[in-house]
Simulated assay, not measured.
Amino acid sequence: MVTKMYYGEILLICFCSIYSVQTLPVTMVRRQLMLLSSTMVHGYEIMQQQKPYLIEFFKRNNVSEVIFVPYAKVNGDYDGYTKMMADAIATFELQTSVKGLHTFDDPVEAIKAAQCIYIGGGNSFVLLKKLYDLNLVELIHKRVLEDGMAYMGSSAGSNVATRSIQTTNDMPIIYPPSFDALNLVPFNINPHYIDADKNSTHKGETREDRIKEFHIINEAAVLGLPEGTLLAVDDNKATLKGIANARLFTRTESREYQPESDLSFLLEK
């Protein structure tokens, strides 16, 4: 049983409520993670920009079957969502089968037996609530960090891989029991990150503004991953991959990193 080690208070402005964040501990045993900003990238078919990195990931971890977790899909078309991802993975020509978690009679037993899980994008609040409802949060944490199960996430699936979903871009359309996520890494991610357009006439908050608001109350680093980037984690080594620079935010500064940058220091906190 994973115990809860950290207690803190955060304020989510859009709810005007106070939530307790109690993160699962990172046990630092063995991590095999691919955390994508998104599967869709301008100028590419689905998952094709990331294809070389994902092929290497599947081969390194001897993945013959992927359990796809479609629960971030708000409209509930889990079959269609799973087929779309299975078709994309089929282009890797690795003979890797893809099965939707929703097709199993017992999701807990399916995760216990899984070689690799892939949690897709959609709404992070809907996704995390479903993971809690199915009693999968602590189980996935344990399977990845203690058993070495490979983990792939995209967008919302990358959000829930971190310490919390506090830096998602999604509308809070449903209440999960907590903002605490899988805590496979001890920092936050902002998928689909985009810098402000200096020529824009838009007067609303920028993505950077929102992350700065997060840091008024929270200390965790936030990695802004633009579309076309991913974070590859192999044991205790984290490497930025892709075709764009990522931006790392802390309470005191932000810094840009180019693809192939070593971000392993983020795993130490």
Rank of each mutant, 00 (worst) to 15 (best):
H141E: 12
D197S: 06
V126M: 01
N135H: 12
A150F: 00
D180F: 03
L134R: 10
A161Y: 13
I194P: 06
A110K: 07
P107M: 00
L127S: 05
I165Y: 07
T168Y: 08
A196C: 13
H192Q: 09
H192I: 11
N190H: 13
G148E: 10
T162N: 01
A196D: 12
A114L: 03
P107E: 01
N159M: 06
M171D: 11
K130A: 10
M152K: 02
V126C: 00
L101A: 05
V137H: 00
P107Y: 00
E146N: 11
L184T: 08
N135M: 05
N183K: 11
E138K: 07
A150R: 01
T167H: 13
R163V: 13
E109L: 14
Y118G: 03
F104H: 03
A113C: 06
R143K: 15
T201F: 13
A161S: 13
L127Q: 09
Q166F: 14
D133H: 11
V160H: 00
A156H: 04
P177N: 14
H102I: 03
A150D: 04
V126Q: 01
M152A: 04
V137E: 00
A110W: 06
L134V: 04
A181P: 13
V108I: 13
P191F: 02
V185T: 10
K130T: 10
N190F: 14
T201S: 11
T168P: 13
L127R: 06
I119M: 04
Y132A: 05
L131S: 05
G120S: 08
A150N: 05
L182A: 09
G153A: 07
Y118K: 03
I165S: 01
M149H: 02
D197C: 01
S154P: 09
E138C: 00
K198D: 14
D106K: 04
R143C: 07
N188M: 10
A110N: 06
Y118V: 07
G122W: 00
R143I: 09
Q166G: 12
I165M: 04
I194L: 15
T168M: 12
K198T: 13
I140R: 00
V160K: 00
